[in-house]
Design a protein around this nucleic acid. Structure first.
Length: 645
RNA sequence: GCGCCUGUAGCUCAGUAGGAUAGAGCAGCUGCCUUCUAAGCAGCGGGUCGGGGGUUCGAAUCCCUCCAGGCGCGCCA
């Protein structure tokens, strides 16, 4: 539809501009409120009427005449107070759209786009909040690739930060475990550390004196001293592997894992620091409470200074982030070293190293960067962008996009289910923020396990004869589809108050409903082979569309057919809109509505039992068309289509 | 205190670079399985779009104001 609209707009402008004071970008084609009013609406008469001091209907009447016999348009009509409605040439439209199936009308604009997402501290298991981040990030990646962009997916690993230090502290000081003993801990290590981290947080809050010992461990890890650094390295790597396993369950993968330890080792910050000092982006505060710190000022926020380097000379998190952002744009003049960390579908996932390796691979140096981080870090992301601006990198600053989204919180019911211990002050709240520190959160794998269990039962009920292995695989696909749709269906500004009943629902506007729709469409083609002995490839050929098939349809079916085709053709527009607004709820809703329409369509119009062969084939081709687009949309959201359900 | 965000059906949410009659899902109630999978389809009921003012041909959408809620503003990450 994107292509059709673009071509039409140009033609319309050509016809109207000699007669009316009109700019090309003022020609807007929108959907009509009702398909019976035509396919596309032009509301240009309203602003023109104002300019020319006449009535919109007068303008519209004149425009309708000027637009007669437009190529690709069957009829132009005046409607309402002054709308100009266009009826598309159905036969040619469908023919063209069918021949362009699987071809995106979108075009790439960047040389290389970097998307950073997931970024879970490697000291505990992933929870539902992390799932939202990863699902949004991965969907963005898929949409950008569909648009034709070259995309590099990064997952930043804060392997030397205080959260990892807390767990190291727990193993050394509370559990008194040697590294070998830690290595022998069986089972899910991220779960083990989830509990330990909560214990440590409580212990540190109650024992102020332990803070010094923790600070010492932090220093020793930053300076790569034994044995603390080995602890941190082992723990973070093992948990990272667990995280990657969790994400794999959702078909989410990465190209490269840049680590904070490498940034420290290769002195990325020192380099950035020199530059920031040189161009006076930051300055040494000499008086007031920030005396002795290097600080940055945000131009529009007069009062506040942001501390970048502490008075003891250590750099803050945001400082390191500026250096990291410079590297992402290839502005640091230096790269990490890399080695393969794991293999995902025979493709290496690379991890950064501070030491030279034998691998000649390079990452970073993007022309546009998306950082998928929740809304609470908006201020810090602004500081990072300001850093780039101050260094004179205006263009890169403009292409540093903070993809922000609201957090996931837990409903009182969910809190009860996970048996969370809730403090007195939190008791009256209608929801509670996920907190790794307090151990309050729904672990990603727990949620996926519960979904899989439920899906398995449903599959077994319906398809008892399937082999165990198939049932398991289908259950996994359904569980993943449920999670991914759940995370996308809310607008990113909307706080998700997580509730098990809602997340575990497979009916209505859910991932499994979409999957079920695709599975059933697919089974029509399978049954075609089984019952009638012919494959759909024999029937669905482009030549068929050259015939006079559409004329065979009775008015009611013609209307339903056409509405379906026009709607399905909107995918490209929907994807482009999603990329521009960074909003995937619309794409999710579009796919859901497409499913509703196709479900309704083939309930009304039987396919295989239709005696009239031409009619049957036309229905088949319609269903094929929609099925293709549906599968594309599902793929963009990372939702797989099971063989059976 | 300052900044950002949110308020739409009983519940959860779409719809906001102004556009034709405000939409879904869940929950409730009616029908439809000897039929391409009932994880489905068809239908019914349900609304002062937080309140008030303004801008105009037209406002859920833009502006002002008030009310309610959330988040952020650390020499934490």
């Amino acid at each position: 539809m994107l292509k059709t609209k673009k071509e039409l707009k140009e033609k319309i402008f050509k016809r109207l501009s000699p007669e009316f004071p009109l700019a090309a970008e003022e020609v807007e084609l929108t959907a009509t409120p009702d398909p019976s009013l035509g396919d596309l609406a032009l509301s240009i008469a309203f602003p023109l009427a104002k300019k020319l001091k006449t009535s919109p209907r007068m303008i519209a009447r004149q425009a309708v005449e000027l637009l007669s016999k437009l190529e690709g348009v069957e009829k132009v009509e005046l409607a309402g107070a002054g709308y100009i409605n266009l009826y598309l040439d159905r036969k040619n439209f469908f023919k063209e759209k069918f021949s362009r199936l699987k071809k995106s009308a979108l075009e790439p604009e960047e040389s290389k786009i970097i998307v950073e997402h997931t970024n879970i501290n490697p000291n505990k298991a992933a929870h539902v909040g992390h799932l939202r981040n990863a699902c949004l990030g991965d969907t963005l990646v898929r949409c950008l690739r569909y648009k034709g962009e070259q995309v590099e997916v990064q997952n930043y690993i804060d392997d030397t930060g205080v959260q990892v230090v807390d767990v190291v502290f727990g193993f050394i000081e509370l559990e008194k475990k040697s590294l070998d003993e830690i290595k022998r801990i069986p089972g899910k290590f991220d779960y083990y550390c989830w509990d330990l981290y909560t214990k440590v947080s409580r212990y540190l809050a109650e024992n102020q004196s332990a803070q010094d010992r923790k600070a010492e461990i932090l220093k020793r890890i930053e300076h790569q001293l034994s044995p603390e650094a080995e602890y941190a390295h082992y723990i973070s790597r093992r948990i990272l592997k667990d995280h990657l396993e969790t994400m794999k369950r959702l078909s989410i993968s990465y190209d490269v894992l840049p680590c904070e330890s490498s940034i420290l080792k290769l002195k990325f910050w020192e380099k950035a620091f020199e530059r920031l000092k040189e161009c006076r982006a930051i300055y040494l505060s000499t008086e007031g409470e920030n005396a002795g710190c290097w600080v940055m000022k945000l131009p529009d926020e007069q009062e506040r200074e942001k501390i970048i380097v502490r008075s003891d000379g250590t750099v803050t998190y945001v400082g390191k982030d500026i250096a990291y952002q410079l590297w992402k744009f290839g502005l640091l003049g230096q790269d990490f070293y890399y080695e393969p960390f794991i293999h995902d579908n025979n493709r290496p996932v690379w991890i950064s190293s501070g030491e030279p390796t034998s691998y000649q691979v390079h990452f970073g140096a993007g022309s546009k960067v998306y950082n998928v981080i929740d809304v609470r870090q908006s201020y810090l992301q602004k500081v990072v962008v300001q850093g780039l601006k101050s260094l004179g990198y205006e263009q890169q600053a403009a292409k540093s996009i903070h993809f922000s989204y609201e957090m996931v919180a837990l409903s009182p019911r969910s809190l009860k289910e996970i048996k969370a211990e809730i403090s007195e002050e939190d008791r009256d709240r209608t929801f509670l923020e996920v907190s790794g520190r307090k151990g309050i959160g729904v672990k990603a794998d727990d949620l996926l396990d519960r979904l899989e269990e439920k899906a398995w039962e449903e599959v077994a009920k319906r398809n008892p004869d399937l082999p165990q292995e198939s049932k398991k695989q289908i259950a996994q696909q359904i569980a993943a589809g449920a999670v991914r749709y759940f995370m996308l269906k809310y607008a990113r500004n909307s706080l998700i108050i997580f509730d098990f009943d809602e997340a575990l629902n497979f009916e209505g506007e859910t991932g499994p409903y979409l999957q079920y729709t695709a599975v059933r469409l697919r089974s029509i083609f399978r049954k075609l082979q089984e019952r009638l002995g012919c494959s759909y490839q024999e029937i669905i050929k482009p030549e068929i569309l050259a015939g006079s098939y559409l004329e065979k349809l009775l008015p009611e079916e013609a209307k339903d057919f056409w509405e379906l085709v026009v709607f399905a053709s909107g995918l490209d527009e929907e994807v482009l809109r999603a990329i521009i607004t960074l909003e995937f709820a619309g794409l999710a809703k579009f796919t859901f509505n497409l499913c509703q329409k196709i479900n309704s369509y083939y309930h009304h119009y039987q396919v295989l039992s239709e005696k009239d062969e031409e009619l049957r084939n036309l229905r088949l081709i319609t269903i094929y068309f929609v099925h293709q687009i549906l599968c594309q949309a599902l793929d963009l959201m990372g939702i797989q289509v099971p063989e059976k359900m």
